[in-house]
Amino acid sequence: MTDIKLPDYLPSWMSDHVNSYLADGEAAHLWDASLGGGVGMLTTLLLTTKGRKSGQTLIIPLIYRPSGDGGFCVIASKGGAAAHPAWFLNLQANQEIQVKVANDEFKAVAKVTSGDERERLWKLMAEYFAPYTSYKAATDREIPVVVFYPA
């Protein structure tokens, strides 16, 4: 992952996490969720997308859980904001993404889940990171549940 840019809107603790993850994915794979209102050490991955407006390669950390079918499940919550997060809009515009889980880097494809699969994975993620429940209550939009599969 070279020539990447951290989005300008990232808080410093998130930028620090990305930089640590890039230096040693195994050491930074677990993130202290108390920084984001959760509890304990949670698994994170790095998602690399191409900015739909800027064209720049952008990277962001996301909490994940294994989806049970070889994928990595994430939530496009943006803290319950009315609009989808930029990373989600970027991958809608360009499916060429890269994922780093610990020290394993791979090209991936993203699937936005629906129906029973979405409900199962939402529950899995909300049990893992409780703030997702309050994010859901804070917005009228359906928060996307996305699974990244190695390409």
Rank of each mutant, 00 (worst) to 15 (best):
E117R: 06
S77Y: 13
K111D: 07
A130Y: 12
V146R: 08
G79T: 15
L46P: 04
Q98A: 10
T113Q: 10
L10H: 12
R118I: 12
I59A: 08
L47N: 01
E96A: 06
I60W: 01
R52K: 12
I97M: 14
L45N: 01
C73G: 12
F148G: 00
K107P: 00
V112L: 02
S134L: 02
I63F: 13
W122L: 03
G68N: 01
R120L: 07
K50D: 00
S114F: 09
A82C: 00
D3P: 06
C73P: 07
Q95I: 00
V109A: 02
K53S: 14
Q95F: 01
T139P: 06
I60C: 11
M1K: 14
S20K: 14
D32E: 09
I4C: 04
L46G: 02
W122H: 09
G71L: 10
T139C: 06
P66R: 05
N19D: 12
A76D: 08
A27C: 01
L124Y: 06
D32V: 06
A126G: 13
E142Q: 14
Y135C: 10
A23R: 13
G36N: 15
V109T: 11
M14A: 13
E119F: 13
D24V: 05
K5N: 10
D3G: 14
T49F: 01
N94C: 11
Y132Q: 05
A110E: 01
D140Y: 08
P85E: 06
S134H: 07
Q98R: 13
L10S: 07
A28R: 07
A23W: 01
M125R: 08
Q56K: 13
L124D: 10
G38T: 02
E119N: 14
V74M: 05
I97C: 15
D32A: 09
L42V: 15
Y149F: 07
A93R: 01
E117P: 06
S77N: 08
F106G: 00
S114K: 12
M41T: 08
G25I: 07
S15W: 04
S12H: 11
W31H: 14
T44D: 09
A151S: 11
K53D: 15
P150H: 05
M125L: 15
S54W: 10
G38K: 04
N103A: 05
I63K: 02
G55T: 03
I59C: 13
D16E: 12
S12I: 11
D116N: 14
Y132E: 05
E26R: 10
A137R: 07
T139G: 10
L45I: 12
L89R: 13
S34P: 05
F148P: 00
I59T: 15
A126E: 14
A76W: 08
D104C: 08
T139Q: 05
W87G: 10
Q56R: 09
R118H: 15
P131T: 08
T57G: 04
D8Y: 06
L62I: 10
V101W: 09
I60M: 11
A93T: 01
F129L: 11
R65L: 15
V109P: 00
Y9P: 11
H17Y: 05
A82M: 04
R65Y: 06
S67Y: 01
V101C: 14
A76Y: 09
E96I: 03
L45G: 01
L30V: 08
W31D: 03
S67K: 00
W122S: 03
